[in-house]
Design a protein around this nucleic acid. Structure first.
Lengths: 109, 109
DNA sequence: AATACCTATCGGAAATATACGATGTGTACG
DNA sequence: CGTACACATCGTATATTTCCGATAGGTATT
């Protein structure tokens, strides 16, 4: 993950609607949710949510798969992993002492 | 870290200038850098950078400490850690199988 | 073929973010 | 005390984001 990709992912997740949608999709891995289900959950208009979804897709955080006449959306866990590694490397580049407590807390889950 | 705090951190880091400044500060832990040094590194005007710095500070990612007539800025590693745990919990909430490969790659650093 | 359904895109209005120079506030130095 | 310095804030112009309704483009159903 390069800087531009990380910036796109951070910007995509920095909006309440998109963060909530992404979290919802992660919770529903690996089955995914249809776009309509996500629209309903968001409470926004269909068109507005569609643009939000496009932002998540462009950032590589969500992939869609055609299923009959609807689209099933799925969270890209690898993209989240990439973003976290990008952030972690900020503090780990040759400074393991900064990262150790981070890894210790992460291993709780 | 609650959702609002995470959103503020994500938004703060989603701008090239602010992400770069934060990474610079992480690299200079624990000594920190003066605001002026950060302004110079950014290439932006002093006032513009000051507002960017305020965003990082409001998100809790940077703390400043008065040092003579200048301010020393320091990265809050704990805030980064909190954000990463917030993101990790999205995929770990009772789904350890999603998180294992993440932790495996993170332990590299 | 006609219709109903699901989602994307267009057009436009309102809100927010971003940038700068100018100015204000406080601190050290002579 | 006066001056130079370090940083924040104000005022303002521009760009971007966000939202909606309306419309377009496919896909299944009848």
């Amino acid at each position: 993950m390069n800087t531009d990709t990380a910036l796109a992912a951070l910007a995509a997740l920095s909006h309440p609607t998109r963060l909530e949608a992404f979290r919802l999709l992660v919770q529903h891995e690996p089955e995914g949710l249809s776009t309509g289900q996500l629209v309903d959950a968001s409470g926004l208009s269909q068109s507005t949510f569609s643009t939000h979804l496009a932002v998540l897709a462009k950032a590589g955080l969500v992939k869609s798969e055609k299923r009959g006449r609807q689209f099933i959306q799925r969270a890209e866990i690898d993209a989240l992993k990439g973003l976290m590694i990008f952030l972690a490397k900020d503090c780990c580049q040759g400074r393991a002492e900064l990262c150790e407590p981070l890894l210790a807390e992460l291993s709780c889950c």
